[in-house]
Design a protein around this nucleic acid. Structure first.
Length: 252
DNA sequence: ATGGCTTCATAGTGAAGA
């Protein structure tokens, strides 16, 4: 199963790029974040035209997630159970025999922001839910935009980022907490180029200078075997790109 | 230099992202 995650930063703007990426890469599953599209306006037919099925949970302006798949999605879950959240950041479904959990983890804005407290509470709720979910579904993939760079090697300039959101100690501890549940980072299962990132700032020619962060991740339960994981930089080079680029894993 | 760029909601600019 080829499974991928991509924060598209508006599905409306990036629809054609998504269609082209599906056609060229033929993933079994593509998880999107930041669709920024309310469900009534979701481009369902445009996705189906590509030969894929899709389930989604979105809202106007912000957030929004979708799972595009060749095989049907069953047992669809919207949001984290028992965690009240207006923001559409989670959709989970079973595809073939794999539980796919697509997350758009909050950004946090800044350490002194209420949004940072929301992010930490959100991560605690995710951890608590995943503990149950992993018992129910031994074959589980947790993927999406984590808004966390797990280690300094995932940051282009660690010194410049000290004390910032995405790299702070509590956020990294939350990421490690997920790993302690038995989830492993697919990307780090393999030898990778140094300075591998999945997001680059639109400003300051961030991509051309490779000033990025690795904040989009695919985490796998122990019952899943992974044969490859890579970052596909091609979409970041297109006209009018998302600031994120896809991460892709081949799993069984 | 606390900006830079992009999107959305708007019809001027402002919020938010990371």
């Amino acid at each position: 199963m080829k499974i991928a995650t991509w924060n598209v930063n508006s599905l409306k703007v990036r629809l054609e790029q998504v269609q082209n990426w599906l056609a060229a890469n033929q993933p079994d599953v593509l998880c999107l974040q930041e669709t920024k599209t309310e469900d009534a306006k979701f481009p369902l037919a445009k996705i189906q035209e590509t030969g894929y099925q899709v389930v989604y949970s979105g809202q106007k302006t912000y957030n929004g997630v979708a799972i595009i798949s060749k095989q049907p999605a069953t047992d669809v879950q919207y949001g984290i159970p028992e965690f009240a959240d207006e923001q559409k950041r989670v959709i989970a479904a079973t595809i073939s025999d794999v539980r796919v959990i697509n997350v758009y983890i909050p950004n946090g804005q800044s350490i002194d922001s209420d949004k940072y407290q929301y992010k930490l509470a959100w991560l605690a709720a995710l951890q608590s839910w995943l503990k149950d979910e992993m018992r129910r579904y031994p074959k589980l993939v947790l993927l999406g935009d984590y808004n966390i760079a797990p280690e300094d090697r995932d940051v282009h300039d660690p010194a410049a980022w000290v004390g910032n959101v995405l790299v702070s100690e509590p956020e990294r501890a939350a990421f490690q907490g997920l790993q302690q549940l038995g989830l492993r980072d697919a990307f780090r299962q393999f030898e990778q180029a140094e300075k591998s990132y999945s997001w680059w700032d639109y400003r300051m020619m961030g991509f051309r200078r490779n000033q990025g962060l690795r904040i989009d991740h695919i985490l796998l339960s122990s019952a899943i075997t992974c044969s490859s994981c890579s970052i596909d930089k091609a979409p970041r080079k297109l006209e009018r790109p998302s600031d994120h680029t896809p991460v892709v894993a081949e799993v069984i």
